[in-house]
Design a protein around this nucleic acid. Sequence first.
DNA 1: AACCCGGGGGT
DNA 2: ACCCCAGGGTT
Length: 224
Amino acid sequence: MVTLARGKRRGFQRRVLAWYAVNGRDLPWRKTRDPYAILICEILSHQTQIARVVPVYETLLSRYPTVQSMARAPLETVTAITDPLGYKIRGRWLHAAALQVADRGGAFPRTIDGLRELAGVGRYTAGAMMSFAYRRDAPMLDTNIARVLSRHFDGRNQRPGQARLWQLAAAVIPKGKAYLMNQGLMDVGALICRARSPLCDVCPLRRSCAFRRGSARRSLKRRD
DNA sequence: AACCCGGGGGT
DNA sequence: ACCCCAGGGTT
């Protein structure tokens, strides 16, 4: 069980949201709540850098504006667009999921468990759809959020398991603001708390971060 | 839990 | 060369 002191939690949330309001990336799927569009962007984003996802996302949506139009399309026309990104199974997943939704009359599932029955939709993608498309307070854990939470709460000498990370991901969501928090955490992870050389000096969470506290004295003394 | 899938980016 | 990238499915 994860327990975060109320004050610590509030501070963490406030810093991420304030930072995101100013520094958040301007990504095309942040303009929509269409679960179909969200599904496309999330499937395409699996283990794939966002810059490479954007053009494929645009092509796919302009070619198949609705889930029914993708369901009607031959599989090969979809995979031809998605295959260049690698993990070619995702084109098949996307098309299969479109068929599943079309069979439901074009209505996407509204629950985590329902979403996870769609091809290629796991715990992460279901959480993303719940918070991005439906604006529900659902946690999600991707490589960015996992890294931010792990570093901030457990520092550099511990390896938190998936169970703890999911609990933390849920614990840091302010009521009614999962969308902003999840997007914000992903951007902090992608732009500041990077895997390689994190920009701790300009991180909104630097004052409370266990990773930074655990860093070598020498690097702390460095000034820009 | 370990393993597989994958092309492309950054260092 | 090596590591990493908005994970999911299978074994």
